[in-house]
């Protein structure tokens, strides 16, 4: 069996690294081989942040080969779409629905595309494409910041997810500060249910 490869993409500050670390720690908890690549430095200043996690025997490369991703988790519609030409038609995709409009749109007159069109084109390209209303769910929970954990919950519910839900939850309980834990666990469950329902 080849390793399971996950790409996570979003905008600096959305918590891409955080959910990758949770997935990675959970894989380690299950005694699986795991490698991950992170982005630090200049790109974190409001730029695109893409991280990878690869799980399973023989996973040496922290980067995912073109056409080799099993799962793409996108935290922002345009950033999800930007990754489509490196995934395969069979890649499973989970994306958040809320645009973060880059400053270039207001300042340089660039255009943010229609989100519905982005999503329908993405679904034509990769049929296993699912929109999770992570932004809405997180707002309803009272903190837009936990949208990343909603997506993590949705990932846990995916049929192909190689990590048990219990391991992800156990890792969250280890890693999230006590005062933020309750809302994060709720966000995770909401994301999980949004797929299972």
């Amino acid at each position: 069996m080849k390793p399971y490869s996950i790409l996570v993409t979003g905008v600096g500050g959305q918590g891409v690294l955080f959910i990758c670390q949770i997935i990675g720690e959970a894989a380690l908890l299950e005694g699986k081989e795991v490698v991950m690549s992170e982005v630090h430095g200049m790109a974190q200043r409001g730029g695109v942040v893409t991280s990878t996690v690869r799980i399973g025997a023989g996973a040496l490369s922290p980067l995912v080969a073109r056409g080799d991703a099993d799962m793409l988790i996108g935290m922002e519609p345009v950033e999800t779409y930007r990754m489509l030409n490196v995934v395969s038609p069979n890649t499973e995709i989970i994306t958040s629905e809320v645009p973060i409009v880059p400053a270039s749109v207001s300042i340089s007159g660039e255009v943010y595309p229609d989100v519905n069109e982005l999503f329908s084109e993405a679904k034509k390209t990769c049929p296993a494409f699912k929109v999770i209303e992570a932004g809405r769910i997180a707002r309803e929970l009272g903190n837009p910041v936990v949208a990343n954990v909603v997506l993590l919950g949705a990932f846990a519910a995916a049929k192909t997810c190689p990590i048990r839900k219990e391991s992800l939850l156990a890792t969250m309980k280890e890693s999230v500060p006590a005062k933020a834990l309750a809302i994060n666990l709720k966000a995770f469950e909401k994301g999980f249910e949004s797929v299972k329902a």
Partner: peptide
Amino acid sequence: KPVATPKEMKLPNRPP
């Protein structure tokens, strides 16, 4: 490996 071929859409840049 084969990669997906999404329709080319004009996407805004997101420099830091």
